[in-house]
């Protein structure tokens, strides 16, 4: 008798009411498991909304942190929002073109053996813990040149690259083969077919993939701790210097002993959470719409 599979004992030795009761029990447990998962989400969003809303005002985004002895703990986090904008922006500029090119190479050009190697590298890169990426960039740039917005952007780009490439590959694979063949049969060169026939079909998918990747790295803290965390309170836009970011600010404020700092941490967390939830939900919604459109045309 095997440990799994439907055995004769299951069907005969156990009577029907008991089997039904077991079935009912397992169904209830599965419902409960789903309820627990949703419960976690509701609990977090609700706490952040409740604790963050009271402190949420325009000053959070427009004012810099006050540094005076009596005023510390007040002011906003304008420097952090500016820094996040710059660092995530540059990271996107690095990861987006590279990710699209990697995806194009894998789907259009690569021989199977090379494809397996690159594909595995993307998966491995995706699995490297964010804190290790931080240490890597620390060793690569920070030890020689000090912390900077560029170093932080590069760290975030390492995390974005496999995400962008993976989602671009998914939509590229959905582009009908007949479309490529029709274009090639008309005598259009391979590169023009790829760039002006295949790629435009996937714009929607690439945008949603990129938005999801941006939403993911906008909240990353670990890669920034070693690359862009030793900062002042002024608003800087120059990525040659270390820039404050929203996640690092939340991390530091949450470890502080001052309750006023906690309030600002909650408010910043609310802004970050709203941004991430809105962008990722919109992207997901667009993705399903886009995918069904592409699949329908096949």
């Amino acid at each position: 008798m095997s440990t799994h599979g439907i055995t004769r004992a299951d069907m005969h030795a156990v009577n029907l009411p008991r089997r039904r009761a077991l079935n009912r029990l397992m169904e209830v447990l599965a419902w409960l498991a789903a309820a627990v998962a949703i419960g976690f989400l509701v609990l977090i969003v609700w706490s952040v909304a409740r604790k963050g809303a009271s402190e949420l005002n325009l000053a959070l985004i427009t004012k810099t942190p006050a540094t005076g002895f009596f005023t510390s703990g007040s002011g906003g986090l304008a420097n952090a929002f500016a820094g996040t904008l710059v660092i995530v922006g540059i990271a996107t500029l690095m990861a987006l073109p590279t990710g699209i090119l990697v995806a194009l190479y894998l789907t259009e050009f690569a021989p199977p053996s090379v494809r397996n190697i690159v594909s595995l590298s993307l998966d491995v890169l995706n699995g490297v813990p964010a804190i290790v990426i931080g240490i890597f960039v620390y060793g690569l740039f920070v030890l020689g040149h000090g912390q900077s917005g560029y170093a932080a952007s590069f760290a975030l780009a390492c995390i974005m690259l496999p995400l962008v490439a993976r989602s671009t590959i998914e939509v590229l694979l959905l582009v009908p083969r007949a479309l490529r063949e029709a274009s090639l049969a008309l005598g259009v060169a391979r590169w023009r077919t790829t760039l002006s026939i295949v790629l435009p079909q996937t714009i929607g998918g690439i945008i949603t993939g990129t938005v999801l990747a941006v939403a993911r790295v906008a909240g990353e803290t670990a890669p920034l701790l070693f690359t862009s965390s030793l900062v002042g309170t002024q608003v800087h836009w120059n990525p040659h210097h270390a820039l404050q970011t929203v996640p690092v600010a939340i991390f530091e404020l949450s470890e502080s002993a001052d309750p006023q700092d906690h309030a600002r941490a909650w408010a910043a967390a609310l802004v970050l959470l709203l941004f991430i939830l809105l962008t990722s939900l919109t992207a997901r919604w667009l993705a399903t719409r886009n995918r069904s459109k592409l699949s329908a045309s096949r």
């Binding site: 993911r216 670990a222 970050l272």
Partner: peptide
């Protein structure tokens, strides 16, 4: 429900940590 469960994965760890402490 599927997208709600996936939304849980999108919450940044620093926010989960903040919630975890307080």
């Amino acid at each position: 429900v599927t997208s709600l469960v996936e939304t849980l994965a999108a919450i940044p760890s620093v926010v989960i940590g903040l919630w975890g402490i307080y």
